[in-house]
Amino acid sequence: METILLLAHADAGGALAKPAREALRAARTLNKAIAGSNLFVGLIGENVQAAADSIAACPATRYFGVAGAEFGQSRYCTDAAAAQAIIQAAQATLVVAPATSRWNRVLPGVAQRCGGRIDSHVTGVADADGQPVVNRWYYRQRMEASLTRTQRPWFMLIDPGSQEACECGAGAATVELVPVKLAEAGQRTTVVGIREPKADAQTIRPDAPLLFVTGAGWTKKQADGQAHVEEAGKLIVDFLKLSRASLGSSKSLVDLGGEGQAVLPFLSHLNQIGQTGSTPRHAKGLSTCCHGEEPHTVGWRFIAERRAISLDPNCGWARGKADVLYVADAFAVIAELNKLLG
């Protein structure tokens, strides 16, 4: 019999963040598909009661918690000890958690401690003949696999945005607090704090509805034979301010910046999508001055509606991959767009 455990962190306010509710959806999907399975919830944080109460109406039958000041912080050794304790207390066979930076860091190690296996970047869960199955991507989101495992516990990190958030209601949950004894040797790391990005680099907005993708074409010579990098930079930054879009960039454009060349100074590797960059999820994507084929375009694998502006009507980035390709000068279009949005 499978025992499905949702693992989540209670945030500073004691609530459950959206990725946790999405992972709960995946856990519930499994619970529903696998006959006779249990659904438990495990919470870790400074305080966990509020988070448990916030989803008390969900079909989970038991709530486990590890609470304490040291568990409020994101740190491998404390998170690992807490997760291991809960899993053992719950005797979980399937462990589902959101693929946040905190869980991504610690859960594989926990899988090792528990003698289990883990799949990360899971985008779907299902069953085949009553056995759990996960979907996940390989080779930088270039191919999708469906797989199953016999080992238990089987850990699954659910990619944020891949599931509908579970909107189950609040109530009063009974949390079984699990004691965790931290070995002294395991407390050699102190969390100092969070460093915010520089003010002029605040252009990554995971929650933005629109992803704005800039390609190396912005820095190339234009029709007048000159490059207009400063103008390009201003147009892009203005557009981001006006549209509240998240900024993505092609690798070649980011790399130019890394070489100390005078190109769009506000871009860093954090903005890069595709290849060694991220594969973000947004409802809409607008790409400008990009050219490429696989694997360049994996950066917008998970963008629902896609439009592109390019001077090349045969642009491989857009043809067959965008819904609309505007054959036009992005400088002119974005300048007009900024006027309209302003």
């Binding site: 050219h291 490429g292 084929e293 090349d312 045969n314 491989g316």
Partner: peptide, 10 residues
């Protein structure tokens, strides 16, 4: 049968 630039890339 692809554009010249796509031949470079693909």
């Amino acid at each position: 049968l692809v554009s010249h630039q796509d031949a470079l890339l693909m």
